[in-house]
């Protein structure tokens, strides 16, 4: 959404990621880079087809549970091949946006911590840790701000979910 301003200033009808890629201009993606998205999709389609072929197909007027999954698997594979052909034939393809590893790692870590702890330690500690860890996704966050913010967030979460909505989740395990 935020990159939208760039889009509007440029007046291009490209995607936002496209405008980002424009800033790293003139580096055309290699053949391998262009093939990535189609290839991954093709693998997905083949995997789906592989499993779907184990299900009973039935016939057209008496379809089994495997009929549609098989069709879908084949369809995805065909579309993936089409995407591969289009992408490989277009040397001016937009470069994929760079992956923001820092944010990917810390946001994932926050969610995983929540998932692992919520059944064991209860809602409040897991909220506190999830918020605290995920805040480091922003490279300018300082430990003290994070600590204060996480305490506030856990408090608000406790008020909203346990006091307000009365969700049946223990606040602290066995306390």
């Amino acid at each position: 959404m935020r990159a939208g301003r760039k889009l509007l200033n440029d007046g291009h009808s490209r995607s936002w990621e496209g405008t980002l890629a424009l800033t790293e201009k003139n580096q055309r993606p290699s053949k391998v880079a262009r093939a990535v998205s189609g290839a991954v999709l093709l693998v997905a389609g083949l995997v789906i087809s592989f499993f779907a072929w184990g299900y009973p197909t039935g016939s057209l007027n008496q379809m089994g549970p495997g009929f549609i999954p098989q069709t879908i698997g084949v369809l995805i594979s065909l579309l993936a091949v089409a995407i591969l052909i289009v992408d490989l034939g277009d040397p001016e393809l937009e470069r994929p946006g760079a992956i923001q590893l820092r944010s990917l790692c810390f946001v994932s870590a926050g969610i995983i911590i929540f998932a692992v702890l919520v059944d064991r330690a209860g809602l409040v500690p897991s909220m506190f840790l999830a918020v605290g860890v995920s805040m480091f996704a922003d490279d300018q966050s300082k430990p003290l701000t994070v600590l204060i913010y996480s305490i506030i967030a856990a408090g608000l979460g406790w008020l909203l979910f346990l006091v307000g909505l009365e969700l049946p989740i223990p606040a602290f395990w066995r306390w």
Binding site: G110, I111, A115, V118, L123, Y149, P168
Partner: peptide, 29 residues
């Protein structure tokens, strides 16, 4: 930057409370 940790918190608790399922939270990720 002040908003997203709260969004993430709402997502985690919202998904978990829906079916009380840790798997759902991991699937969301």
């Amino acid at each position: 930057q002040k908003l997203y940790p709260m969004i993430l918190l709402m997502i985690c608790v919202g998904v978990y409370s829906h079916r009380t399922s840790v798997t759902d939270v991991l699937l969301t990720l």
